[in-house]
Structures are given as structure tokens and as C-alpha cells.
Design a protein around this nucleic acid. Structure first.
Lengths: 335, 335
DNA sequence: CTGTTAGCGCGTTCAA
DNA sequence: TTGAACGCGCTAACAG
């Protein structure tokens, strides 16, 4: 592999000059610049990124920490982050936190140790304090899916409470009054925020919130299955079910279908996230859109703007969810 | 940030000794080792990975190139690769090829330029020749989802033809004789292999293959929608549809349901991949299991074994697909 | 078992 | 505008 020395020798200049043309330093004569460029091409020269990083103390790499890699949720986000960063020749190092504080911290340490220029974090288990302290360190961080007021400008998040509100308001407006709710894990911020929205909508329609109609799921399909069985077996009356994400809806609906219930004839459903599958399952899901891929993109843009001083980029911090009406919720009794 | 010099000074040894204990080199006296360890802890020392890489010419990073990051397919694969590698303190740099030759090559160059110790590639567009040549370079590669006989030991793949065969044989055994097939893009290897299996099964049952019943999709939900509409509008007779992946099945089924057809009453479906959602859509999908996450894990193990000399790992190259019978296919006319 | 000494390839002063 | 020299933090011979 050719080094900067080889290029310098071939071009008849010093290595400092080669370094200058590489780094777009303008203080180079046009003729010498061309000579160097030619030499680089002839030798198929490629800079050694380790040496660059060591000397410059900057790696052009961004650490991305997500909760999980499988599932329909993080793929689109990762895709957007990768493409936005890649377009500017930065690269992505990924790590997974599994929503466990210890692993999240471990992963952050890992990424920091790898000399990342910045971190994009989608973490759920670590405390606000930890993140605030981390944000004061040398490596900039951006938070996705989390709002911490002390560092609000570094947060890219969805108004989850509004989303929960919209979902429940929809079934209320359809006329439902007995509404079950399948929540996400209470330890996750977005889960409690969505539930708050749910309660807010109920209150607005003067419908009392009944804890017995609210069951906690795990955000996965199976959680929807378990929750639905529990709800159905409790022999409580309800005509609609609002779930904190689409995966749980699909699990819940599968239980209903198995038991011979019609959806949305007997039971209406509203989901959350609008995952790609939402429009292809039967019935097509009425759900709340979660622009997760846009949030990923925005996190990348934030970095480009703030770390690499790539201005003229407009950054939005809060995303607002929208209701997507399809076929899984109807007026009660309207079979 | 403390350097190796600081540690050496504090421990009262030379930097070479510090380097030795870091690299688990046993040629260090127990007492001095403890002194060094203590000094490292006190200083909160963390090695500079760039300097390590520069000096050792090895980065402990693996480049992973996948076709896409979204969709239900690559997430599980990435998850397994990440966790297997991470467990041995290696890290993953990801790149996306989008199934376009130019981008795939570009990404390979990119990862190579980043000094990856090895590459895991899931590429579809580049030629066999390119990969063979690449495999002879300095950086080891492993191929996922692709078989090239010249470098078969570096290939981790699924017997796609067998999978296609199993899917179609299933509906044949149920008694179907008029069977439509929704293929993946013909430019993708796995798509043509699966189609081959389909034809083989037909031949075995003396059912002639009719090109008019075979339509090419794009492996996405929408492709299933378009293909199904085309099939239905062609007014041809068929009682079963075999799709080259589950996403297309879900799209296809949604069209049928919209047009009032019963599944599997009027039309039987068999998919391919057994994506997580397959068991939660209605009807539950009969499909061919594609152990993509195991293949990801195996690719990682291959590297650990061959690059980092981590022996005692057993590596399997070929994975065999299995039929998963659920509810989307029945005997014809059995409503 | 431990210390000394070269580099690894490049960025970045400082002079010229 | 260009070049010489030093240092980034660490690994890997080679001595001792």
C-alpha cells in the first residue's frame, strides 16, 4: 500500500504538500497540486485512516447505539442515519443496548473507546443524570426518542403523549366508551408518555380511566397476545382496544380472530408506530404514524451541522405524530 | 486522557511492559503485572485504538455490507453478527449496497479503506469474478446468501432451491395443480434459485410449468400487490399461489381480501422466509423457514475461527430450509 | 522476565 | 507557497 511518502517522492514534493492537497488546503500552487493528484492516482494511493485519526484526533466515525436491531422499528432509522452520514464520508459504528442500563453504559464506553466523533443514542434504561453528564463530556451526543429538558437541543423526539391522545380520541369520537389499553413496558419513557395521552383523551370525554382495562405489554407481538387473552378472560366489557404499538396490535388481533371475534366488527383496534406491515395485515391498521426514519435522518443532520460545521441545514427537534385512519376501528355496534 | 507512558511511569516500569499486560502477554511477572493493572485503574487508562491499529495494522473491526437495513430481513442478521462479534470486543462497521453493483463495490472500497480486518458481505449485484478476486486480496471476506463454487468455504448460504421445492411440493401434495408463482427479481440469485425449486417440484408431479402463471415481483409488499392484481386480472385458473417471500405474500393476500376472496378457502398461499410477522397475520402464514439470524451468527463465527484463530468453533456453510405449516394453505375446493 | 529502540502513516507547527 | 522536523500512542523486535 502506497503511503504519503511514496506519493511525495513520485510527485517530487514533500509529504507536507501531499497532506495539504488531501485536506483541501488551498495554500498549494495549482501546478504542484496537479502533480500530486496525478501521483496519487498512479499509485492508487489511499490514506491510512488510522494514521489520520491518530494524528488529527478525529475519526470521521459516529457511534450509533440502539435498543435492538431486529424488529420493524430500528431498521428504517438505521438506514436513514447510515445514508445521511455516508453521503459525507462518515461511517457508522453500531452497538446495541437491549434496554438494559448496564449494557447501555457498556456500549457507550465501548463507542467512546473507539474514538467516535459523536454518538447517536437511543437509550431507555440509563438515567437522565447519566446522559446529562455524558453530554458535558468531550464527545457530543444526540438523543433519539427521549426528551430531557436540560439538554433539550440535543434531543430528537416524538410527542408521544400527543400520539397516545390521538389514538384514544379517535375511538372516542367513533363513539366508544369502554376502551381497553395495552401499554408498553412502564420502564420505557415512551410507554408512559403514550399512556398519559390515553388518559388525557379519556378525561376530555369524561370517561373515567379504569386501571383494570389497562394491561402492560412488552411492545412485541407476544405481549399483545398475552395482554389480549388477559383482557378477554377478565370478562370486562370493552368495545375498543388501543395498543401502544403496532406489533402488539397484530398479536392482539390474532387472538381475537382465533376466538371467532370479528375485527373491527366486534372489537375496534388502534395501534401506534405505523410500521410498514400495518397496511398489509387484515384489517388494515388504523394507527399513529411515527416518523422514525425522519428522526434518524434528523439526528444525522444535527451532527453534520453541529460537529462538522455543515451549516445551512435546518434541524427539527420535536416530531408530531399523526393519526392514520385505515380499517381496524369502527363505530361500536356497527358490525 | 492517560497514555501508556503515564501508566508506565506510575507503575515504575517501561511502556513495553504495560503493552504486554494489555495484550495478555504472559511473559510478565505476577507482581509487576499487578502494579501495572493498579496503575491503569488509578489513571482510568484506556488504550487509544487508533494508535493500536496503526502500530499493529489490525483494527478489530469487521465491515458488514448488507443490501438494505430496513425490512424484516436484515435486522435479525445484523443483530446476531453484532452480538457475536461484540462478545469478543470486535466491532461492526456497516454499509449498505442497495443491490446495485456500483454501490456495492463502492461500499466494499469504503470498508476496505477503513481498515476492516475482514468483511461480511451480503451482495447481490456484483459478479462472481469480482468476489473471487476480492477474496484473494489481503482482507478476508465471508459471503452470506450466496454460493460461489470457487470459494465455497467462504460462503454461508441457504439451499434456496430446496426451499422453493418444499413450498411448491406442499401445495402439490395438498392436491393443487394450478399453481401461480410470484418470483423475486430475476437479477437476484436467490430468486432464480427459488424458482428453480418451484419448477423442480412441478416436474416431479408431472405438472407443466406455465410461464403465464409466473410473475416477477420485487420482494416487497407492493410487489405482491401488483403481482396478485396481474394474476387475478389475467383470468387464468389457479387455486394456489406460491410467493418467493413473505412480504409479497402479505401484499398478495391483502389484494385477495379486498376483492372478497377467502384465504385459504378460495386461494391457498405459501410464502418464504418465515419473517416474525408470518405467524401474526391472518391467516397465519404457511412458509419456508429461512434461518437468516443463524446465518449471520455463523458468518461471525467463521471470522472468529479463521481470522482471529479462535478455534473450537464449528462452522456450518449450508443451511437447509424447512417448511413451516400454518394456516394459509389448504386442499383445493375445501372451503 | 524486562527495558530500549524503532517505526506505523499522517497532521501540523515553524522556518525559509 | 513549500519543506523539515516533531509528535500522536502504541506494537514489536531486539537486547539484556
Amino acid at each position: 500500500m502506497a503511503t504519503i511518502y511514496d506519493v511525495a517522492e513520485r510527485a517530487g514534493v514533500s509529504l507536507a504538500t501531499v497532506s495539504r492537497v488531501m485536506n483541501k488546503n488551498t495554500n498549494v500552487g495549482e501546478k504542484t497540486k496537479q502533480k500530486v493528484l496525478a501521483a496519487m492516482a498512479e499509485l492508487d494511493y489511499r490514506p491510512n485512516t488510522f494514521a489520520q485519526s491518530l494524528a488529527s484526533n478525529s475519526s470521521n466515525s459516529i457511534g450509533v447505539l440502539v435498543s435492538q436491531l431486529d424488529g420493524p422499528y430500528y431498521g428504517p432509522m438505521m438506514a436513514e442515519i447510515e445514508s445521511a452520514l455516508r453521503a459525507t464520508n462518515k461511517h457508522v459504528i453500531i452497538a446495541v443496548g437491549h434496554s438494559v442500563a448496564e449494557q447501555e453504559i457498556d456500549s457507550v464506553e465501548f463507542l467512546l473507546g473507539r474514538g467516535c466523533d459523536a454518538l447517536i443514542l437511543d437509550v431507555e434504561a440509563v438515567s437522565d443524570e447519566y446522559l446529562i453528564e455524558l453530554s458535558q463530556g468531550a464527545t457530543p451526543i444526540v438523543l433519539i426518542n427521549r426528551y430531557i429538558s436540560d439538554i433539550s437541543d440535543r434531543c430528537i423526539y416524538l410527542d408521544n403523549e400527543l400520539g397516545g391522545y390521538l389514538a384514544t380520541r379517535h375511538v372516542l369520537e367513533l363513539g366508544h366508551r369502554d376502551i381497553a389499553y395495552v401499554s408498553g413496558p412502564k420502564r420505557k419513557h415512551d410507554a408512559v408518555e403514550r399512556l398519559e395521552g390515553h388518559k388525557k383523551a379519556l378525561a376530555e370525554f369524561d370517561v373515567p380511566y379504569k386501571a383494570s382495562l389497562c394491561v402492560e405489554g412488552d411492545y412485541k407481538e407476544d405481549g399483545g397476545v398475552v395482554a389480549m387473552e388477559q383482557l378477554l378472560d377478565s370478562a370486562q366489557r370493552f368495545t375498543a382496544v388501543v395498543c401502544a404499538n403496532d406489533q402488539m396490535v397484530s398479536g392482539a388481533i390474532s387472538v381475537c380472530l382465533e376466538r371467532g371475534l370479528k375485527v373491527p366488527g366486534d372489537l375496534s383496534f388502534v395501534g401506534y408506530d405505523n410500521i410498514p406491515f400495518a397496511r398489509y395485515i387484515s384489517p388494515k391498521l388504523t394507527t399513529v404514524n411515527n416518523p422514525i426514519h425522519e428522526m434518524g435522518k434528523m439526528a444525522a443532520l444535527w451532527l453534520l451541522k453541529n460537529i462538522y460545521k455543515n451549516d445551512q441545514l435546518e434541524v427539527t427537534n420535536v416530531f408530531v405524530p399523526e393519526l392514520v385512519v385505515r380499517g381496524s376501528a369502527r363505530r361500536p355496534g356497527n358490525k
